[in-house]
Simulated scan of single mutants.
Amino acid sequence: MFDYHYQYSLCSVPAWVLGSREFNADPAPLSVHGVRAAHAHFFKKLDNLSNWEERARIFQDYMEVAFHLHQWREKDNVGKLLSIKHSYLRFLRGWLFDADSVEGAVLKGWVESRMGLPPTYHGGRINGKESNAYLAYLKDRMKGSGRTNAIFSQLDLLYEFVQYELGRRDPDTTHITLFRGVHGFYDHELLEWDAKTGKGVVRLNNLNSFTHDFERAWEFGTFVIEARVPVSKIFFDGAFLHAGILKGEEEVLVIGGIYDISRRII
């Protein structure tokens, strides 16, 4: 069994609460301390925009200015590549290709740093902080964030924007049903399982890919699990950014913890 140790949380809920089944059943809003206050003028501007595409464009523009990403962009291709290298977009795209990549380690590192939930899998099962898998994760995390402009602060604002957009669209919704294609539970800790009903309890990795589309989930595994995910634990939803950023991507990145799941069949 995984040797799990919660850490200090920089959000509004302690890590041991945030990672629990009880939180998922009765969730509370989450916010990284200080982010909304530091960018109050940005969120005030969003309040005055009724069109979500315009809000997404303003978010993209604001990120470039606030974190000086535009300074890396030149007219030649080298400048464009440097701009992406220092941008949150690099890490989202890296995750979409491989969640166990350097970029994936940085995103898992953000969850660990802000939410207090350490990863349980990164290229292998992490059995505590002394394990080789955890040390490999730390190496990837340091390599990915070392020469990037305030990447955790960029991800703070990305998360807060997604949470703002979710609340703006439907303030009464507390949960969203999402689907994840899997090949087994090798990268999750299976805590309970009833083979007859296809229902169980798992500790998900601290960050996980899901989708809104049940049919699409089958493209990524031999079976599909369904979870009722608290809105406050949605880190990223590609549908909320400008169409030109990650066009066609349907992944939803979900903060982990202990979840009730159901195995779905066609």
Rank of each mutant, 00 (worst) to 15 (best):
M1H: 11
F2G: 03
Y4C: 03
Q7A: 02
W16V: 06
W16Q: 05
V17K: 10
V17Y: 08
L18V: 05
R21W: 05
E22V: 14
F23T: 03
N24V: 11
A25Y: 12
L30T: 03
S31G: 09
G34Y: 07
G34K: 12
R36S: 10
H39Q: 08
A40N: 12
H41Q: 07
F42P: 03
F42R: 08
K44F: 10
K44L: 08
N48D: 13
E53C: 08
A56E: 05
I58M: 12
Q60P: 04
A66M: 04
A66D: 03
H68M: 12
E74F: 13
D76E: 09
D76A: 08
N77H: 10
S87H: 04
Y88G: 02
Y88I: 09
L89D: 04
R90S: 08
F91Y: 14
L92I: 14
R93D: 03
D98E: 14
D98V: 15
D100H: 06
A105W: 00
L107Y: 06
L107K: 04
G109H: 03
V111D: 02
E112W: 09
S113Q: 12
G116D: 00
P118C: 06
H122D: 04
G124F: 06
N127Y: 06
G128Q: 13
E130V: 15
A133S: 13
Y134C: 04
L135D: 11
A136I: 10
K139D: 14
R141F: 11
G144P: 09
S145E: 06
G146M: 13
R147A: 13
T148W: 07
A150H: 08
F152P: 01
S153N: 15
Q154R: 09
L157W: 08
F161Q: 02
F161S: 03
Y164P: 14
Y164R: 12
E165L: 07
G167K: 01
R169Q: 13
D172R: 15
D172Y: 15
T174C: 11
H175W: 04
H175G: 02
T177Q: 15
H183E: 07
F185V: 02
D187P: 01
D187S: 09
H188R: 08
L190D: 00
E192D: 10
W193Y: 11
D194Q: 12
G198H: 10
G200C: 02
V201E: 01
V202T: 04
R203Y: 00
R203H: 03
N206G: 03
L207Y: 05
L207N: 02
T211R: 05
H212N: 11
E215D: 15
E215M: 11
W218H: 15
W218N: 11
E219D: 10
F220N: 07
F220A: 10
G221D: 01
G221M: 01
G221Y: 01
T222M: 05
F223R: 01
E226I: 11
A227Q: 00
K233H: 07
I234C: 08
I234S: 04
I234T: 07
F235P: 00
F236G: 00
A239N: 03
L241D: 01
H242D: 10
A243Q: 10
E250Y: 13
E250S: 11
E251Y: 06
V252N: 02
L253N: 01
G256H: 00
Y259I: 04
I261N: 00
I265R: 10
